[in-house]
Simulated assay, not measured.
Amino acid sequence: MSKRDYYEVLGVAKGASERDIKKAYKKLAMKYHPDRAQGDKSLEEKFREVQEAYEILSDERKRAAYDQYGHAGVDPNRGGGAGAADFGDIFGDVFGDIFGGGRGRQSRARQGSDLRYNLEMSLEEAVRGKEVEIRVPTLVECDTCHGSGAKKGSSPTTCPTCKGNGQVQMRQGFFAVQQTCPTCSGKGKIISDPCNPCRGQGRVEKTKTLSVKVPPGVDTGDRIRLSGEGEAGEQGAPAGDLYVQVHVRDHHIFTRDGNNLYCEVPLGFTTAALGGEIEVPTLDGKVKLKITPETQTGKMFRLRGKGVKSVRSGAVGDLMCKVEIETPVNLSSKQKELLEEFEATCTGQGAKHRPKEKGFFDGVKQFFDDLKS
């Protein structure tokens, strides 16, 4: 089954900025996250697809390779993404000898694969930063043979078939092509007496415990790279990297957008009409918010510097408080009587006290008058 275009997966244009790609990823990651999938395999597959697309398009080098060569340019089976030089190697191997300019390619053990660890955090932890311990199942260098794959006291020998090149030449008439040596599987060496613990692989399975320093201000989609903490390479080759992918859980009060935080604040209609002060929550505790008289529902109040400090620029965002006027419930007889008295004082003065209401009904009247005419 062919893979979908990564830009299509995230719903962005090919020329989308890094910010647009990250924003699209955050939205889709929250939509398809396994916590919400609840066993729905189709949603889990979409989440993996979104993760894969973001991993490629958020990396400048991988994105460039993908834009030029498509999925083949970032095929993990070619060691984590092929650039122009990789494709040059491909065509050189196949066609170089045909035209007399061939060159043998010295085989080398492959570098270890990169790993990804999904780290879930609360909003408070992400804003303040935290040092966490994670357990990662991976392949590590064998302690017995130190990655060589050969039994202690012995060592790998040069492959007699390819003479250590890892490639052999096959001729068919006028054509000559190179292919992976069938004797050593492209490694260039043969282990006649393999190490017992790793069975000649030079690597063994192990769960590593690592300490990760998460800087303050990270957000969903951010990655922390731990160099050399991925899988160990084959026969002593360098290890890959570990990428810790951050996912911030939804908060019951605040919503984050970039460096700004948003929250909805219920407001009594008396305070909304007369003005006053109320207490609102921030990540650092409660603060006073001054409400101006005649505040309408939906009005946004800004508390500067009460948002999130950017993990990159150090700039601090704001807290945006959206007020929602709350209609009183469970009124006593006395309270109802007082409200009726208040309403009586507004009779005939709708335009003065409730201009939006009067404007709306005047528009409705005009609408029906136009239908009749």
Rank of each mutant, 00 (worst) to 15 (best):
308 V>I: 14
172 Q>R: 15
26 K>L: 10
36 R>T: 05
114 D>G: 02
27 K>H: 12
179 Q>C: 11
68 Q>Y: 07
2 S>A: 14
113 S>Y: 06
41 K>V: 13
188 G>Y: 00
106 Q>T: 11
56 I>M: 12
148 S>I: 07
357 E>C: 15
316 V>D: 00
182 P>M: 04
107 S>D: 02
48 R>V: 06
76 P>W: 07
292 T>V: 14
337 E>D: 05
62 K>S: 13
287 V>Y: 05
94 V>E: 12
182 P>C: 07
88 G>I: 11
247 H>L: 01
125 E>H: 01
317 G>I: 10
349 Q>W: 01
302 R>N: 14
127 V>G: 00
100 G>H: 08
339 L>E: 00
122 S>R: 13
246 V>R: 03
31 K>I: 08
91 F>C: 01
343 E>P: 00
4 R>M: 05
237 A>S: 12
167 Q>M: 15
265 V>K: 09
306 K>S: 13
268 G>V: 13
271 T>V: 14
330 N>R: 13
151 K>E: 15
170 M>S: 11
18 E>V: 14
168 V>W: 03
122 S>D: 13
230 G>I: 06
229 E>D: 08
86 D>I: 02
229 E>A: 12
2 S>K: 14
266 P>K: 04
92 G>C: 03
256 R>H: 06
300 M>N: 10
41 K>Y: 10
69 Y>D: 03
351 A>V: 05
371 L>S: 01
72 A>V: 05
299 K>N: 07
172 Q>H: 12
291 I>T: 01
287 V>M: 03
34 P>T: 01
214 V>K: 05
228 G>S: 00
213 K>H: 14
52 E>N: 14
236 G>I: 10
211 S>T: 15
181 C>N: 08
340 E>A: 09
172 Q>A: 13
308 V>P: 02
172 Q>E: 12
108 R>K: 14
261 L>Q: 00
160 P>T: 06
150 A>I: 10
302 R>P: 07
209 T>N: 08
103 R>L: 07
202 G>N: 03
242 L>K: 03
31 K>E: 14
361 F>Y: 15
55 E>V: 06
72 A>K: 08
29 A>R: 07
284 D>G: 14
126 A>Y: 02
191 I>A: 00
33 H>Q: 10
354 R>S: 14
11 G>Y: 02
210 L>N: 01
240 G>C: 05
305 G>H: 10
51 Q>H: 09
60 E>W: 08
102 G>A: 08
147 G>E: 03
92 G>L: 06
30 M>F: 09
74 V>T: 08
84 A>L: 13
160 P>S: 12
139 L>I: 04
53 A>D: 12
93 D>F: 11
307 G>C: 06
315 A>D: 12
332 S>N: 05
343 E>H: 02
34 P>W: 02
296 Q>Y: 07
162 C>V: 03
77 N>Q: 07
211 S>K: 15
253 I>D: 00
303 L>W: 02
279 E>P: 06
261 L>C: 01
245 Q>L: 04
37 A>T: 10
7 Y>W: 12
268 G>R: 04
40 D>T: 05
278 I>R: 08
116 R>I: 13
71 H>L: 11
135 R>I: 01
247 H>V: 05
314 G>D: 00
270 T>P: 00
309 K>E: 13
96 G>S: 04
320 M>C: 04
85 A>G: 01
221 G>M: 03
101 G>N: 15
219 D>G: 10
310 S>P: 00
126 A>K: 03
